[in-house]
Nucleic acid binder design. Structure first.
Lengths: 197, 197, 197, 197
DNA sequence: GATGAATGAGGGTTCATTCAT
DNA sequence: AATGAATGAACCCTCATTCAT
C-alpha cells in the first residue's frame, strides 16, 4: 500500500508516460523532445528528469505500460463466457478501440530493435511475445475446436495485428464511422479469415 | 533521350534514393543522418547535397519514387488477362514482395502529415489516393461482378494495406517462409475477406 | 520592477548584445560566428541560444539596442538649454564619441536590407527614420531661426551622418587626437556647412 | 601589345571583377558566393577559378581595380586648368558619381584589415594612402594659396571621404535628385568646410 | 521537488576549392 | 577553357542531459 507521497509520485509518472505516448504518437519518437513532453503538462523538462532517468527510460516505461495494458485487456476477455470466435472478435475490437483512443500506434507498430537494446529490448520483446502468444492460443483453440479454419497461426496473427495497428493511420474522428462501429466492423471482416460459417 | 552524363546523374540520384529508403526503413527517418545515407554509398555528405536540395527534399523524392513504383505495379497487373480475384491476389502479392525486397515500409506506413507540408504533402497524398483508388476500383468491380462480397470498400482496403505493410515488421529472411511463399500466403488469406467461394 | 533573477537574465542578454556588437564591428557580421560571440564572454555557443533564438535575432536586438541608445542620446541633448548650433554640435560630438567607444559602426553604417527583412526590417528602418528626423528637425529649427543656412536638409543630414560614421574606419586610439578632441573637432568642421558666422 | 587571346582573357577577367564588385556591393563580401559571381555572368564557378586563384584573390583584384580607377580619376582632374577649389569640387563630384554608378561602397568604405593581410593588405593600404595623399595635397595647396581655411588636413579629408562613401547607403535612383545633381550638391556643401568665400 | 541555466555532442547545410574529363 | 562532380571544413542550430539553487 502506497503512501500519499508515493501515490502522488506514481500519478505524476503516469501523467508523463501518457504525455510521452501522446506526443510520440503525433510526431514520432525522434521528433518529440523532452521539452514537448514536459510543456504539454505545464512542467519544465528539468522536472521530467526527476521522474525518469532519461528519454530512453521514459520511452521504455511508456512502451511497457502500453503493452501491459494490452495484455491485461486480452486476459480480461479470456475470462468471459464467450465462444472462441466471440473472444477473438472482442479482442480485435478492443485493441482497435484502444489504439484509436490513445492515438498511439507506437505500441506494436514499430520495430523495437530500432529503439531498444540489451535488457530493455528483451523485456519489450517478451511482452510482445506474451501478447502475440495469447492471440495465437486463441486461434489454436479455435482450430482445435473446429470452429476456425486450419490456418498458419503466425501469418494470420500478423495479418490481424497489422490491419488493426494500421487503423490509426487512416481513422479520422470526423469520418463516416464512430470509433466503436469501426472497431466492430474491422474485427468482423478479419474474422472471415478464420471463422467457419 | 538522355545524354550519357544525364544518365549517370540520374543513376546517382536513384542510388541515393535507394540508400535513403533503405536506411530510413532500418532506423527511421529522424534517426537516419545524411552521413548515414552518404557513407552507405561510399560518398560524403556534401555530395548528396549536390543532388538533393536538403534532407526533406530527399525524403520527398524517395517517398514519391516508392509510390509511383507501386502505382506502376498495380497498373501492370490491371492490364493482364486475369479474373478480378486473381488480379487482387496478384496485387497483394506483388506489393508484399516489393516491400520485403526494398525493406522499406515507409511507403504507405507512415502518416505523411508528420513529414510533409504544403505542396509536398499534397503530392504525396494525391499519389496515395491514386494508389488507394486503384485497389478500390478493383474491389468495386469484383462486387459488381458478383465475385466479391458486398463489403465496405474503404475499410477492407485499409485492412489489406495495413496487413501488407506490416509484413516488413515481422518478416525475417532467416524464417520459415521464402519471400515469395509468404507474399502468396498472405494474399491468399486476405482474399478470404472478399472473394466468394 | 524586475526580480533578481530577471535582472541577471537581462544583464546576460545585454552582455551578449555587447559582445555581438563588438565582434561584428571588428570582423563584420558574416565573419562573426556564434562561437566568437560566446567565447568572447567565456560561455559556450549553446548558452547564447538560451537567450537568443538565433543569430539573426541577436543581430536584430543588437542593432535595435544601438539605435535606441542613439535616440536616447539625442533626446537628452534636446532637453538641454543650448542654442540650436550648440545642440547640433553636441549631437555630432556625442554620436562620434559613442561610435568610437563602442567600436561599432554597425549602427547606421550598413544597409539594413542586406540583413533584415519583414517586420525586423521595418522596425530598424523606423528607428533609423526616428533618429534621422530628430537631426532633421534640429536643422529645420536652425534654418527657421535664421541661424543656419537654408540647405537641403536630407542631403546635409546624410553628409553629417556619413562623416560621423566613417570615423570608426580611421580613428586609432594610438593616433594624434584623443577621442573627445576628435569628436569635438569633427563636429566643429561639420558645423561650417550649416551655421552662419 | 596583347595577342587576341590575351585580350579575350583580360576581358573575361574584367567581367568577373565587375561581377564580383556588383554582387559584393549588393550583398556584402561574405554573403556573396563564387556561385553568385559566376552565374551572374552565365558561367560556372569552376571557370572563375581558371582566371582567379581563389575568392580572396578575386576580392583583392577587385579592390585594387577600384582604387586604381579612383586614382586615375583624381589624376585626370589635377591636369585640368581649374582653380584648386574647382578641382576639389570636381574630385568630390566625380568620386560620388563613380560610387553611385558602380553601386559599390566597397572601395573605401570598409576596413581592409578585415579582409586582407600580408602583402595584399600592404598593397591596398598603399593605394588608399596614394588616393588620400592626392586629396590631402589638393587641400594643402588650397591652404597655402590662401583660398582654403587652415584646417587639419587629415580630419577634413576623412570627413569628405566619409560623407561621399555614405552616399551609396541612402541614394536611390527613384528619389528626388538625379545622380549628377546629387553629386554636385554634396560636393558644394562639403566645399563650405574648406573654401573661403 | 522544481526550475533556470549551461553544456556539448551531433546533425543539417553551405560553400570555397579541387580535379578529371 | 570550361564544367560537372566531389569534398571537407566550418557554421548554425537543436536537444538530451546536468546541476546549483
Amino acid at each position: 500500500m502506497l503512501s500519499l507521497r508515493e501515490q502522488k509520485t506514481q500519478k505524476k509518472k503516469d501523467d508523463i508516460v501518457q504525455s510521452a505516448l501522446q506526443m510520440i504518437a503525433e510526431k514520432g519518437y525522434h521528433a518529440t523532445t523532452m521539452e514537448d513532453i514536459a510543456s504539454n503538462l505545464l512542467m519544465t523538462k528539468g522536472s521530467v528528469y526527476y521522474y525518469f532517468k532519461n528519454k530512453q527510460d521514459l520511452l521504455f516505461q511508456s512502451q511497457k505500460s502500453l503493452l501491459e495494458q494490452s495484455i491485461r485487456n486480452i486476459d480480461d476477455i479470456m475470462q468471459k463466457h464467450l465462444t472462441t470466435a466471440e473472444k477473438l472478435e472482442e479482442t480485435m475490437a478492443q485493441h482497435t478501440d484502444y489504439l484509436i483512443t490513445e492515438r498511439t500506434g507506437f505500441g506494436m507498430g514499430l520495430r523495437p530493435e530500432q529503439f531498444f537494446e540489451g535488457g530493455q529490448l528483451k523485456d519489450i520483446i517478451d511482452l510482445r511475445d506474451t501478447y502475440s502468444s495469447k492471440i495465437d492460443s486463441l486461434i489454436a483453440i479455435g482450430i482445435e475446436e473446429g470452429s476456425f479454419h486450419d490456418v498458419d497461426i503466425t501469418i494470420v496473427r500478423n495479418i490481424i495485428v497489422g490491419a488493426m495497428n494500421y487503423v490509426i493511420e487512416w481513422y479520422s474522428p470526423e469520418g463516416t464511422w464512430s470509433q466503436a462501429t469501426l472497431a466492430r466492423s474491422i474485427s468482423s471482416y478479419l474474422k472471415l479469415i478464420l471463422v467457419k460459417d
